[in-house]
Design a protein around this nucleic acid. Structure first.
Lengths: 376, 376
DNA sequence: CCAATATCTGTAAACGTTTTCAGTCGCTGT
DNA sequence: ACAGCGACTGAAAACGTTTACAGATATTGG
């Protein structure tokens, strides 16, 4: 009778002349007399009842929400991940909470700690660096976490990572095999995990190809278009005369490509360009950019699935009596480490310089060549 | 004493030897005796207490969560919006819930209805079409909604929209003034609001410029890279001989640019290209793409702010006795309509054909020319 | 030293749901 | 007709927090 706010089980119970327990039962499909069902459903429909998810969460001990935290949604790699995570989550009836950390360490840690407030049932975290505090906080996490990135062996948290080393190796080997000898490397910060690993792969591929590495050909700045552009201009100004440039991600690569164009260098004839991540950008530009697909989508999908698995192992507010030392973590089963295989996608930007590329790439999406590397 | 699950106010109260009310008061900074404060804070710290946000939400009647629903996070326009929304929301202490609808009408409606479950305090919705059901559902929304897009006058919901008509007009006028006469138009679906409006602007600009529109120069397909590429190939195959192409978004434009390159046409000398949205893509490609900034970021930011305003007008579970007809909607103040001004950003892809563009655009980001249109 | 007051504290209710536990009812079989 | 049984129902507790209210202290003024 009272119009105090939105309809609740109480309003329905009053209107249908039954108890709130019966209302709940009918609404959840537990047995009830046909007559009762009819009356409750009628009342609910008339009132336009929608169950209060917050109350359900409180009672059930789970929110049906997942959190994804990365540094900045502007990066196409994270967009790809979000897409996959969202798809997997929603299929399982979970909502997705987005959190940008702007690569602030303190923020990343806060996200993990905030698992304790029970706002979401689990977390997918994409840290750019792993500090000792990360390890500490992750170990003490109040709920399941899956990290996308590299994690030391000891940390009891699932992780799915890219094989950057192999990925970079594939790219550089490809350049060496196409006859390039002065292969520049435009990298992001060296003290990040990707920055470090990609450099390892670069050096390894050079060694394998019998090319002497020239430190003057390396640049380490930040991940971004402007940085790539400046880096290549800088390399050219310094007279290092590269005939190819491998970039640690697609944004750097497009920046480098711009610089090359600005200098009047033809791609790929005078300068081959290869990027990493195989984001949408690589297909959208001209000439289409060769790039190493590090499996962003796959990593997102896998991470989401692993998280959901952990969640189904620890249903709601079930008091498990087993010898599990701590409640939230991934104890029922050791922490898993999954590595996705990189895949080199060769497009026009690094085609061997012999054939002219004008008409050969009428259909760039289908003519792409692929080299697959197995996960280690 | 009991280790049953995570610490609660009860655990703290036991350990500190006070009542749960005192615990809550101390934790919320309401007056208490120094001794009590000390003991509670000590106990809380020792137990690693984190308040349960779900319980707080239930009690307080607000979740401190906002929802943003759009069709697909893959579109750079939405990424820009998410970024801004997230920033505004977080600054106000709100979390952001992301929802991809895949442009399924039924899904969009479900999102609005799901406001009733009290999972989030408000909604920002980016519909691609507005159906009668939209109007109906939006009118009956259980909480504040801000729509990014065009909404009929009658609907009592705030909306912030782009001026697509003017935007398209700016772009096409620019092409006409640079001496282009056969200006093709590659559009998205005509039965969407953007599709319709951009065509109006295109036609208006042609009329104003004294150029007779040629229906053979128009193509309406879908919004996407491949569609743009095919459309331009198609136009060229049909012998329509355009000297410029205006595209309804940047992805279409990059597709068209690819097609032009594949045909060996030089941009902008033989074919000018202009896109819309001024996404990151426009700056990343070569030659840099002229584009109309429809203010995605601004719309996102504004929408978020408007939503927060509505929320602060309707604090928590305050029972307002006023003559407000319905509880959730934007009643305290009529629905607002905000239009953001489009801005044409001229880059190399549409530079007047007279001067060679090779060295003129050493610094594409700063050399861009700008034409601003006022909101109507 | 007592009364008046200001400050702090504890009990209990409330938010909206699910679920346990007893109870009620009607039915069947003999 | 009655015991027994099954299916259904309602009262009440629980999830973890905030908060109104009343009760209990300490503090001050006279």
């Amino acid at each position: 009778m009272s119009d105090g706010g939105p309809p609740t089980v109480v309003s329905i119970a009053e209107r249908a002349g039954v108890s709130i327990a019966s209302v709940s039962r009918v609404l959840n499909g537990v047995g009830a007399r046909p007559e009762t069902v009819r009356r409750v459903e009628r009342a609910a429909a008339e009132l336009g009842y929608v169950p209060n998810a917050v109350a359900q969460s409180l009672k059930g001990g789970r929110t049906k929400q997942l959190t994804f935290a990365m540094q900045d949604i502007g990066n196409p790699v994270y967009v790809a991940m979000v897409r996959q995570i969202q798809a997997v989550a929603r299929a399982a009836g979970y909502r997705l909470l987005l959190h940008s950390t702007d690569a602030v360490i303190e923020d990343e840690l806060a996200v993990v700690r905030s698992l304790g407030d029970r706002t979401s049932d689990g977390l997918i975290l994409c840290p750019i660096r792993i500090t000792p505090e990360h390890v500490e906080v992750l170990t003490a996490a109040a709920g399941p976490v899956v990290v996308i990135g590299s994690l030391p062996q000891g940390v009891p948290v699932d992780a799915v990572q890219a094989d950057s080393v192999l990925g970079a190796r594939l790219a550089v080997t490809h350049l060496v095999e196409s006859g390039r000898r002065r292969i520049a490397f435009v990298n992001g910060p060296l003290d990040t995990v990707p920055g470090h690993n990609r450099r390892q792969g670069y050096l390894k591929a050079l060694a394998e190809g019998g090319v002497v590495p020239d430190p003057a050909l390396e640049r380490a700045t930040s991940f971004g278009l402007a940085a790539g552009r400046e880096a290549l201009h800088d390399l050219l100004d310094a007279g290092t005369a590269p005939d190819a440039v491998f970039c640690a991600n697609d944004q750097l690569a497009l920046g480098a490509a711009q610089a090359a164009h600005e200098r009047g260098l033809r791609i790929p004839e005078e300068m081959a360009v290869v990027g990493m991540d195989d984001s949408d950008l690589a297909r959208a530009c001209w000439p289409p950019l060769s790039s190493v697909d590090l499996g962003s989508e796959e990593r997102g999908r896998t991470a989401a699935r692993m998280l959901l698995e952990r969640l189904s192992d620890t249903p709601g507010s079930d008091d498990r009596q087993g010898p599990g030392p701590e409640p939230g973590g991934p104890r029922p089963g050791a922490a898993r480490r999954v590595t996705t295989a990189p895949r080199l996608v060769v497009r026009a930007s690094s085609a061997p310089s012999t054939p002219p590329f004008t008409s050969a790439f009428t259909s760039p999406s289908t003519s792409a060549t692929t080299a697959r590397g197995g996960a280690r």
